[in-house]
Simulated scan of single mutants.
Amino acid sequence: MTKRDAVFPANRHALYDLHQYSPAIRSGDLLFVSGQVGSRDDGSPEPDFARQVKLAFANLRDVLQAAGCSFDDVVDVTSFHTDPEKQLETVMAVRAQEIGEAPWPTWTAIGVTWLAGFDFEIKVIARLPAKTN
């Protein structure tokens, strides 16, 4: 078995070590990104929900960039919401700013009861851009 090819952003936050996970793993031409949350630098949740969502997308963007990707390379999204009905409008507004116009990636939104103190989490699968020599 080959060793996991982990990707870490330049501004690594405390949660990766605290919860012992890699932000992303390269496998072939795919990038599997762990759930990103709206954490402050120390790993604590941002209390303002809109800001928490923006930080989660910013953390996701940082991980994608560390792998040489962008939101344009994302093919599948899964998001987790502690109160989807109340939160969806805010999430969709941030999503529109970050992901942009159609064609959009596939997206599955899941309502959950617990996210370790957070209210929103987003994970993706992206296709790694072809390397040019």
Rank of each mutant, 00 (worst) to 15 (best):
S34A: 15
I25G: 07
K54F: 00
V112F: 02
Q36E: 12
I125L: 11
K86E: 12
G28L: 02
K54P: 00
P45H: 02
E98P: 10
N133P: 12
A96M: 10
L115H: 02
Q52D: 04
L115E: 03
V7A: 09
S70N: 06
P105D: 07
P45N: 05
Q65G: 08
I25H: 07
S79W: 05
L60I: 07
D41G: 09
P45A: 08
A56T: 01
W107M: 10
Q65P: 00
D17C: 00
I25D: 03
F118A: 07
S27K: 12
T113A: 13
Y16Q: 03
E85N: 09
M1V: 13
A50M: 07
Q52W: 02
Q87P: 08
M1Q: 10
L60V: 03
I122K: 00
F120Y: 15
A93L: 11
A6G: 07
L30S: 15
D42C: 02
G100V: 13
A102Y: 12
L115F: 04
D72N: 15
S22K: 02
F118D: 05
E85T: 12
V75F: 06
Q97T: 15
V74N: 01
P105T: 04
K54M: 06
L15E: 04
V7R: 06
D76M: 04
H13P: 11
D48F: 04
A50F: 07
T108N: 14
G35P: 03
A66F: 07
K3C: 02
E101P: 10
A58C: 06
D29W: 05
P47T: 08
R95T: 13
V94H: 05
S39C: 10
S39Q: 08
L64G: 09
V63G: 02
A14G: 02
L18S: 02
F49P: 08
P84I: 15
A102V: 14
A50H: 11
I99W: 12
E98F: 13
A96S: 14
A102N: 13
Q36S: 07
K131W: 04
N59Q: 14
A116I: 12
F80P: 09
